[in-house]
Design a binder for these strands. Structure first.
Lengths: 152, 152
DNA sequence: TACTTTTCGAGAATAGTTATCAATTACGCA
DNA sequence: TGCGTAATTGATAACTATTCTCGAAAAGTA
C-alpha cells in the first residue's frame, strides 16, 4: 500500500476517534498536517489539497483548521512577519524556534516547558488545557547571510 | 507630581535610552503599556490616546507598536478567538495564561520557562533573542459560569 | 533660529478571514 | 441496504484588520 494512502487512513482513524464527521477534505488536510513537517500556512494547505486532486474552497480550509484546533489536534503558530498563521499537528509535545529574518520554523522535541503548566494552574486557578512555547532568533543561515552583508 | 506625569516621564526616558525619536504619541502609547496591566488591543490603545486628549491615527498606533516590538520593549500576544492582537510591556520576563472562553490574560511573573532558550540555541544553532510562553485554559470565573450552565 | 530628517495622519488600497446559503454529502437507523 | 436528517461544502460577497501614500507638521541638531 502506498505511503500516501496509509496516512489517509491514519487521518480517518483520528477523525473517528474524535467523532468528527469524515469528509475527503478533512482527511487530506489532517493527513497533510500529520505527515508534513513544514508547518504550512492556509494557502499551502489549500494548494496541497487541490494539488492532490480534491476539490476544496478556502472557507473549508478555514473551517476545518478551526475544528481541528478546537479538538486540540493541531495548534496555530503566529509566525509574525508576513502575518500568516502557520499550523502544526500536535500529538507529541514540542516547541518552535522561529527565525525572525526568514520565518523558518524548527521543531524541538523536548517537553520541559510543559512543566510550567502546573505552576500556572496553582498560581492562577485556571483549569489548564494546553500551552505553547516559542523561541525567536536568527537561524544559522541568516546569521551567516547577515554577517556577510555587513563585512563590505 | 501626578502619577500620570511620572509615567509619561518614564516613557520619555525609555525612548531616549533606545534612541527612538520622542513624540507625544509615542510617549502616551508607551506609558500606557508600561503602567496598565490589561494587555490592550490596538483599538484600546487608540481610544486611550485620543481619550487623553492627544491626536493620533490608527496608522500611527500600528507604526509605534511595530517600532516598540522591534526594539524588544513590548511583545505581541495572539489572544486567539476574536483575532485581535494584544500588546504588553515586557521589561520583566513573565508568561501569559489565557482564558479560551473570555480571553482574559493573566500574568505570571516566573521566568523558569526562559531557561529553555539555552537548550533551543544548542539544539538548533539559532542565535536566540527572546522567547514567549502561553498557557491556555479556563479562568476560575468561566469554570464556574460553565459549570452552572450545565447543571440545569 | 534655521535646516534636515523623521514622523504623523486621513483616507485609499489591500489582504486575510468570516458569513451566506443552496446544493451536496455523510452517517445513523430502520 | 437504502432512507432521512443534519452537517458540510464551496463560490462569492461582505467584512475588517492592517498597510500604503504622500503632503503637512514636528523633532532634533548645529
Amino acid at each position: 500500500m502506498a505511503q500516501e494512502q496509509k496516512t489517509l487512513l491514519a487521518a480517518t482513524d483520528k477523525l473517528k476517534e474524535y467523532k468528527i464527521k469524515n469528509t475527503p477534505q478533512r482527511q487530506v488536510i489532517l493527513s497533510y498536517l500529520m505527515t508534513s513537517h513544514d508547518h504550512p500556512s492556509i494557502e499551502m494547505i489549500f494548494n496541497y489539497v487541490r494539488g492532490n486532486g480534491f476539490s476544496v474552497s478556502l472557507a473549508t480550509v478555514y473551517n476545518t483548521l478551526q475544528l481541528l484546533i478546537d479538538n486540540n489536534l493541531i495548534i496555530e503558530i503566529a509566525a509574525d512577519s508576513g502575518g500568516h498563521m502557520r499550523y502544526d499537528y500536535f500529538e507529541t509535545p514540542h516547541y518552535h524556534v522561529i527565525c525572525v529574518n526568514c520565518n523558518k520554523i524548527v521543531d524541538v522535541y523536548n517537553d520541559k516547558y510543559k512543566k510550567n503548566e502546573e505552576d500556572a494552574q496553582l498560581e492562577t486557578g485556571f483549569q489548564v488545557f494546553n500551552s505553547q512555547y516559542e523561541v525567536y532568533g536568527l537561524c544559522p543561515e541568516c546569521q551567516k547571510k547577515l554577517a556577510d552583508n555587513k563585512s563590505y
